[in-house]
Design a protein around this nucleic acid. Structure first.
Lengths: 126, 126
DNA sequence: TTATCTGTTATATAAATAGTATAACAGAAA
DNA sequence: TTTCTGTTATACTATTTATATAACAGATAA
């Protein structure tokens, strides 16, 4: 569990940690039920305060990607249910990104190809 | 030019303004070369400080969607060139969103359908 | 039993961001 | 000449981000 963070990035540290773990789950590197390092351990590895890691974990749990057991630690969730609200949020966020691509002249086909390429990378062996 | 902002949103006001104008350009409601309201006028309409509007305009100009003429005002850009850096940023941002969808069980086909639906909305008549 | 580990809570502090308010500037345009 | 444009400057408040340190209560293992 050695993930990269960039202190000079415009992205908050807790967001970087959130996204790194999210990608780990998406690629299967972090399997359902897998245990995450404790907030103190990961904070130590990254040179980051435990509260910063804790915020990432709380957000991941809030979004249904992680289950937190107060006394045992954090684990990748076992089942990922998508709610109506999640679909709505996804659509809204996608709309902004796709608007940028559309304005920049990216065609529907080019966009579909890009999307397919990204999704296939999730299931590709390392 | 009456766009909606939500003071209670977690999104910063300048981001909401940025995205509203972006969507206006994507749908063609704001045509290339069209003039945007002055920072004072839009700020007045929205009940927002002119510096907040100005920040939105600066970011839109920075991203190539708007051209600012110091003495004439802000206009929708005439040509939208996509640079290598822009493609990279788009791919990275898309990857996070698609990772969430992928984990939540959205299939490639379902995702493609969603993407197509969003892009078609840009070109659909009002 | 005791020591260690877990996330959590509390408190405090510093830096950056978000947003407002007001004033002034210089050039374009009517 | 007046009005309009984005810009710059200064000041202020509130929130967010991040760190630091300490303590708590339950689980777990020596």
């Amino acid at each position: 569990m050695i993930l990269q963070i960039n202190v000079n990035s415009e992205k908050p540290l807790y967001t970087q940690i959130y996204e790194s773990i999210l990608l780990g789950i998406a690629t299967g590197e972090l399997a359902p039920g897998a245990s995450l390092p404790s907030v103190r351990q990961l904070g130590g590895e990254l040179g980051v305060n435990l509260h910063t890691v804790n915020k990432s974990y709380r957000l991941l749990a809030q979004d249904g990607f992680v289950i937190i057991n107060k006394k045992k630690g954090a684990f990748v969730a076992m089942d990922f249910s998508i709610d109506k609200n999640g679909i709505e949020d996804l659509r809204n966020a996608l709309t902004i990104l796709l608007a940028k691509a559309h304005i920049k002249g990216l065609s529907l086909e080019e966009t579909q190809t890009l999307v397919q390429s990204i999704i296939e990378n999730f299931t590709k062996e390392a």
